[in-house]
Design a protein around this nucleic acid. Structure first.
Lengths: 323, 323
DNA sequence: CAGACGCGTGAACATCTGATCAAAATTCGA
DNA sequence: TCGAATTTTGATCAGATGTTCACGCGTCTG
């Protein structure tokens, strides 16, 4: 008995080619290579994940042109980018990341510095970025790393992912997101390395950050606070945060202990960045988004259809005024 | 009653994005855009066809490494490229085109001139070529155009497709494939434009052509001949043709009326091209291929698995010697 | 103006693909 | 060396995709 092939590790590129270039079915590839059909399915999935298979859509069509321009009229925005809405949180995040990736890409030119905030939505972006070689991009984190709980991307890792994806240089902010107390925060801020990176961040060309709400789980920052802290912040009128800085219904900073413990640019400093991209979606972000938009905390919006529609409704009937 | 969207032409890029970047299903896109699911399926197919959607496999894995090197040992070849085999002729052609496209691409460097022969297999290539900008490529047809019967790609159109695909320049051979008679052929050959293009062709760096058999329908050339002509050629020992030039079992040219009527390089002239890629597959091409390989009419082979295996068997037991 | 042809459309079906789950294999630790 | 946890594997099934067919509309022709 002789076998035509010993059972070695299956060559990923070969399988991808047979499928995508030669149009074999999973089953046919399985038979050809002596694998099970499911194995082939998995290898193909891996090939896509790893990037051996790359699917590009050559088009700059925006998905929801109507909504985007409507938002542009209703709020003081440079641009709005709207993506499809999903029930499933996972899909929603993935999709929003794709839109946001297109959005940032549109702002990249030679030598651009991008400051990235800590946010689940922002973390979804790098996977969708296409390499933009030769642009000499710099990626700077806006805040320190959030330790503990989830190993959710720290701004540092986030900056690294961004940089890897677009072939840019990543900077590091060697500090925690929140210091132990106000005094410790002051010490951190005096650190030269921290200062240098923060200066670089506030003088960035483009800023991209999530918008957090004040619901219990609306944003990475909020999730790291105790119920008491959160209650305090809400009592002071906070409706949301951007890059860890809470703001009230007038778009003004909300002072307090948390604010003092945070290491990162102030709301005013953030405003100094010319292009401020806010990425968020979902019912619990709606209020915060409306305020951030109206008061120009962000001037480029990335969201999904249903949030966009809700925001348009808010623009007509501001605040919580029932019809 | 108001509709959210009037029924206008559906934007292709948008649909492609929703599917490939945002992961919606056909059905979801249909609902979103007010189309039927099938319509979406078709639009996506079109998007792929047109090239709005581009799927790239980043890998230089060869598919059948073992066979390819075995062929390289069994015959005097520079390279062999083997693709999967199919029952269905259509799929086979498509697949072979993909392999051949990879193969030619491997030989393209700055300033390369590629001469293309008339052949169904060669016609399947352009669709799989990736743009290779900045290489300053020239594409030259090897023969004149075959009028009448099928509007199958003339070498001229073929050269144009190639050139368009790789961003090169196409040349034109203003002549028919076969002249009315030997004398008419001579007149054509004296035409300065014809001479110039032919000279360019025979001094090409790379040649890519199909290998025709002498079965009734084995190749575009053969299909254009009358039964009587074909019989005559076979009687003189022809086993196949490359770019319209028939050769016998010793790889020598087969003279005769058809040969005199043909406008294009002779077998000897073809041999002057350093890289001679032959593309063919199928039982009725097997004999011709074996001869073309053994006698160096081509030195790079593109074929499918089953043909490759047959050729290896032929190499062991040459000619029609039964075991 | 009637008929015929061609194109575009959607319904039904067949196939392909991807997800879930349980069994098997493997690795790691004791 | 054994057992337990983790990973890998393949069977089954639900859902997604693509193909085929028949219909209807518009257009061209006689």
């Amino acid at each position: 008995m002789e076998r035509t092939n010993g059972q070695k590790q299956p060559p990923l590129g070969k399988i991808a080619r047979l499928y995508y270039e030669h149009g074999l079915t999973h089953q046919e590839i399985a038979d050809l290579c002596g694998l099970s059909r499911i194995k082939v399915t998995r290898l193909l999935a891996e090939a896509r994940l790893v990037g051996i298979v790359e699917i590009t859509v050559h088009s700059d069509d925006h998905l929801f042109v109507g909504l985007e321009s409507a938002l542009g009229h209703a709020y003081p925005l440079r641009q709005a980018w709207v993506g499809p809405a999903f029930e499933d949180e996972g899909r929603a995040l993935h999709s929003l990341g794709a839109v946001a990736a297109d959005c940032v890409t549109a702002f990249l030119t030679k030598g651009t510095t991008v400051a990235v905030g800590l946010s689940g939505s922002v973390a979804a972006i790098p996977g969708h970025l296409r390499e933009a070689t030769g642009l000499d991009l710099s990626i700077v984190p806006l805040t320190g790393s959030k330790g503990g709980v989830s190993r959710a991307a720290s701004p540092h890792e986030l900056a690294l992912s961004f940089a890897a994806a677009v072939d840019g240089r990543a900077y590091h902010l060697p500090a925690p997101l929140l210091a132990r107390n106000a005094q410790a925060a002051r010490v951190w801020r005096e650190d030269p390395a921290v200062q240098e990176t923060l200066e670089r961040a506030v003088s960035a060309d483009v800023l991209i950050a999530g918008i957090g709400g004040t619901a219990a789980d609306a944003g990475l920052l909020v999730q790291g606070l105790s119920a008491a802290e959160l209650a305090g912040i809400r009592k002071r009128g906070a409706v949301g945060d951007i890059s860890g800085r809470f703001f009230d219904a007038d778009g003004a900073a909300v002072p307090g202990e948390v604010d003092e413990r945070l290491i990162g640019p102030s709301l005013e400093q953030l405003r100094a960045v010319p292009v401020r991209i806010g990425v968020a979606r979902g019912a619990d972000k709606r209020r915060a988004l409306a305020v951030a938009l109206r008061h120009g905390l962000i001037n480029v919006l990335v969201t999904d259809v249903s949030t966009a529609e809700a925001l348009l409704a808010d623009a007509d009937a501001p605040e919580g005024a029932p019809s």
